[in-house]
Design a protein around this nucleic acid. Structure first.
Lengths: 205, 205, 205, 205
DNA sequence: AATGAATGAGTTTTCATTCAT
DNA sequence: GATGAATGAAAACTCATTCAT
């Protein structure tokens, strides 16, 4: 909604920028997941991305920019997938679909989400605020869907309970990303989605 | 339950060790919360704790040890508070009390918990495994309480659902620690406990 | 003879590596001679070599590597100079030439030899073993030359005396390096070589 | 001959000083031999000697003093053993006895001698000069014995060759200390003394 | 005399970033 | 646009020495 926070590059060719940044994001996510932001060196990222350290710095200004690009990329994808829910507004089914789509996305981009939640605190103030704002926008999407359900009468919870319920949905998604190692012993992403839809609705219906 | 993992000190006086370590933990938690483990220097920790860098290293061997001491201290406190629930085994009231005690502890030690969940991945292999084991022991406490309720008949969920329910309780606690900045606008810890007790029980009763 | 023990460098250009390492060896030998390995800092070596501390560490991984490079360089030179003795095998003249070449080399590289014998014990296990092996190879060269003389009949000493005689030659070389300060008052390298050739041969002929 | 270089102690009781210093020398020699002067900490020396770091510093002023005490102790012993040679002055037998006594001493105090020759360069200027002077005094003892033999006519070498011959004797002693690991495979100290007496005399007779 | 906790200057090493080629 | 050698600030950690008890 708000204007994007752009990262300057000394390269002009936009499509080249996009390609190089994708390469570096892929490499960086892998490395950040394994070793964390601080233990990963820019040299390693460049190598993993397939180009030189000099080239890396043609497309970003600082190491932190890579972390920001990762976080920003996630919200782009969330926005994209949640903005096209083909289901009647105000219906419980729409809520369930949103949960399913969101959790499925987390499953597809587990590493990215883990990096987002583990490392984003390493961002400088302004980038961090941008990311927090995006996070709240994401929670707000679920608040919106919940509100519609309350208005339509399909959900009977108080106004006050909506934010916590939205946070709840988001946090249970995080849980899948973070506790996968423990949870995959018992559940697949499909069964996890089923159970969470069930329990979350029991909690608020 | 298992033997503690001890951190060597070159100082002999045990009570002095305890005191100095408490000082450094207090300072380190504050700094780690603000700037993260990697952005905090050992000199800053020493200064915050009120002694010199040399003295700091008389009580630990490596920076990582401080992080470990923080994590270990949390589990000590969890163990202590959850091991003395004066309530009939197998009762729903006991479960609610446990949740209340646990969430209250998280509220008392929010910074410590945030550091635990944000930074513990920076621990070396053996320390990390120790911390993960402790984390699982903590989840196991809630599994035990839930199981008692199932046995007594006060709770009617399947065996399979117990682990996820226990994780759920723990994760909702984490949520308070991590999302406090968003949640305190709407809830106090008391109201949060009430709502969570209610919703968690709706989910499993 | 055996494969060389390589020191990793993060610089790719081989000729640059060779040049920079030569620079740092020259500086380090001077400093190690003056103050010893431990009293010399890596910063001082970098400064003496004419580049920054960061650059130094682009060409080695640890301070110890510099010491190793010095030691290894000596054996390269020994090998080089002793492998091309143009003199009939088994002749006393060949033995005298070898002694002369070796002592002349020690005179040319006195500082390096002193560092080798004074500081090599500071090497880690594997580097130390490599250096000891090289040292023994060097003694073995003289044993070989002596053996030829015994076979040809120009030398009449027992098999058992060969190792001690070879050590003897090497040690008298060390003596020139270590006791130069006392010996140069009385002898030049040329007169030292003459006297030693004479005495060593008297001892074994 | 010259006045001793005294090391100040804040303790008054002379016999206590002597005892404590013996303890610390014994411990330090062991540690210096194993790890070198710089890699050995004063704490380790104190521990090995059986008292605290505080006590250590009651008997010396600086770490270096311990090294000096070791070196000085060796020369005391050399002086003691070589000043009472009961043999006719000017006889070859006296020279052989001196060599035997000296090499036997090196065998008795191998570790001390190795430390002397390996580490004495770590002494500060004035202590180093004192040690070098003592070393020359020791060489001078052999020069004296050689000179007597020349005067008595039992040895027929030029005046000029005397210093090198004396150095030679000393250096062959060092060789036993340093190359023991290689030499003990072939020789005992007794056979080494025999062979050296023989070869050294062949060299100068 | 003995102890050992406290100190902080000094050391090695790393790594983000720059810039000449 | 791409490269990679050069840089130096900054960080963790050590250890000789002191001094209050």
């Amino acid at each position: 909604m708000k204007g994007k926070r752009e990262i300057a590059s000394s390269v002009k060719d936009e499509s080249l920028i996009e390609m190089r940044r994708k390469q570096m994001i892929r490499g960086a996510v892998k490395l950040f997941k394994e070793k964390g932001f601080h233990r990963t060196t820019t040299r390693e990222i460049a190598k993993e991305a397939g180009f030189s350290i000099g080239t890396l710095y043609e497309y970003i200004r600082a190491k932190e920019d890579i972390l920001f690009l990762i976080c920003d990329g996630i919200y782009d994808e969330v926005q994209k997938r949640l903005s096209t829910l083909e289901m009647e507004e105000g219906s419980i089914e729409r809520l369930k679909l949103a949960i399913s789509v969101y959790y499925q996305l987390i499953d597809d981009m587990t590493d990215e989400f883990v990096v987002l939640y583990q490392e984003s605190k390493s961002l400088q103030k302004d980038a961090l605020q941008y990311v927090l704002r995006k996070e709240l926008e994401m929670v707000a999407i679920f608040e919106g869907i919940l509100k519609e359900c309350v208005i339509s009468g399909e959900l009977r919870i108080s106004e006050q309970e909506i934010p916590i319920a939205a946070h709840h949905i988001v946090v249970q998604g995080q849980m899948w990303a973070f506790r996968r190692w423990a949870l995959t012993k018992e559940y697949s992403i499909e069964s996890y989605i089923k159970i969470q839809q069930h329990q979350l609705l029991k909690g608020i219906q």
